[in-house]
Design a protein around this nucleic acid. Structure first.
Length: 378
DNA sequence: TACTCGTGGTC
DNA sequence: TGACCAAGAGT
């Protein structure tokens, strides 16, 4: 398969009005228009908004960020709780980053929480953005999120390009390269097809189509309003699109973790650096096992290197397997005792002794939450 | 461009 | 049951 230029794709711009109409007709009947599913998309009296009506921009912004790489059903309870805790941008801006992280705990991609907090602190100091570039200048908001906010809340004519839309477009045009490539081409298609008179409804319809009909596996083309125009359908097997990326196997590592308990019954935790994996989250200290190294030796070494203390490593508490986006880890967790030294934040932001009943006040990543559960049930 | 950055649903 | 993949952004 050689290089293809966008000029080799069909030009659907002349057909855009017709495609938009058939998509919106489908959406009126089959779209995910349920206030229990995405409440930020509805008016306060529970109606789908008319074209001239605006929605709560804060609610849409928070939802759009939470929905980055995260499924609708997962986001909903987080969004509900978040809007009760931080009902205004002032409430959000005046909250501590720690409080914000606690609300985000379990959602993943934790830099999103830090960036929302930073954006809120900017927004209470100056007027809110009025256009795409203004929104994109805020931390954590890229073109899709900005377009989502503007089209959802204000019905402004801004295109979007999320995973659903990319898949639909890749099939519609039978694009011959993986979704990670040719971003400008996909953006051009999304903008070409966008219904300028109903951008809110159109964008929602396009995403709903991808999520419910033009699905990754076994697309239900019999229900698709665009089947007659779809190049992938015409090819005979639409599931051949999008073209699959070649994927590398996840690297695997064993991590030794120590739960040090002192005479007062307190446990030692540390806050990770802001940069990198799980930035700013709290954890039980530990680190990578080196080749040929016993796990007990690994844990003792990590505590000496990263906290400057000597510990004795005792019995195992739990082993947790956890897959991140780009690596797979096995955490082997041992109970430990302090022999000598005062813990120092050598490789972390801070270290702290806390009682077991205080652990719930600290944001922990999912793998650590399982360790805490084992510790509390011990 | 290519890589990092989480977690849970789904088959 | 491991692999794929979600309303992507930042660097």
């Amino acid at each position: 398969m050689g290089q293809r230029s966008s000029a080799e794709h069909r030009d659907l711009s002349a057909l855009a009005p017709e495609l938009s109409q058939s998509l919106l007709d489908w959406w009126e009947i089959h779209g995910r228009k349920d206030p229990a599913l995405k409440p930020w998309m509805f008016t306060k009296d529970g109606r789908w908004p008319e074209p001239h009506e605006h929605l709560n921009v804060l609610e849409c912004w928070i939802a759009e960020v939470m929905l980055q790489q995260t499924q609708l059903s997962v986001v909903l309870p987080y969004w509900q709780r978040w809007m009760k805790t931080f009902p205004s941008v002032e409430a959000l801006a005046s909250a501590s980053l720690e409080q914000v992280r606690l609300q985000w705990q379990g959602l993943g991609y934790y830099s999103r929480a830090r960036r929302i907090h930073e954006a809120a602190r900017q927004l209470v100091q100056r007027p809110w953005p009025g256009d795409l570039d203004g929104w994109m200048a805020l931390p954590g908001i890229g073109r899709t999120t900005a377009g989502g906010i503007l089209s959802s809340a204000l019905n402004a004519p801004a295109p979007i390009l999320d995973g659903n839309v990319k898949r639909v477009l890749a099939r519609l045009y039978a694009h011959e390269r993986p979704l990670s490539r040719d971003q400008h081409v996909f953006w051009g298609w999304s903008e070409t097809l966008l219904d300028r008179s109903r951008p809110r409804d159109f964008n929602q319809a396009l995403m709903d189509l991808g999520a419910t009909v033009c699905t990754p596996r076994r697309p239900d083309c019999a229900q698709c309003p665009w089947w007659e125009s779809c190049a992938a359908y015409a090819s005979g097997d639409p599931s051949n699109w999008p073209v699959v990326e070649e994927r590398k196997p996840l690297p695997f590592q064993v991590i030794g973790i120590g739960v040090v308990i002192n005479a007062a019954g307190e446990v030692l935790i540390d806050q990770r650096l802001e940069e990198g994996l799980l930035g700013g989250m709290w954890e039980f200290p530990g680190g990578k096992q080196e080749s040929g190294e016993a796990i007990e030796a690994c844990i003792a070494r990590e505590f000496m290197e990263e906290l400057g203390i000597l510990i004795s490593v005792e019995k195992e508490l739990i082993t947790v397997e956890h897959a991140y986006s780009h690596k797979k880890l096995r955490f082997v967790v041992h109970l430990c005792s302090l022999i000598s030294g005062e813990p120092q934040p050598i490789a972390s932001q801070q270290v702290r002794w806390v009682r077991l009943d205080q652990l719930k006040d600290y944001p922990f990543p999912a793998a650590n939450a399982r360790m805490i559960e084992a510790l509390l049930q011990r």
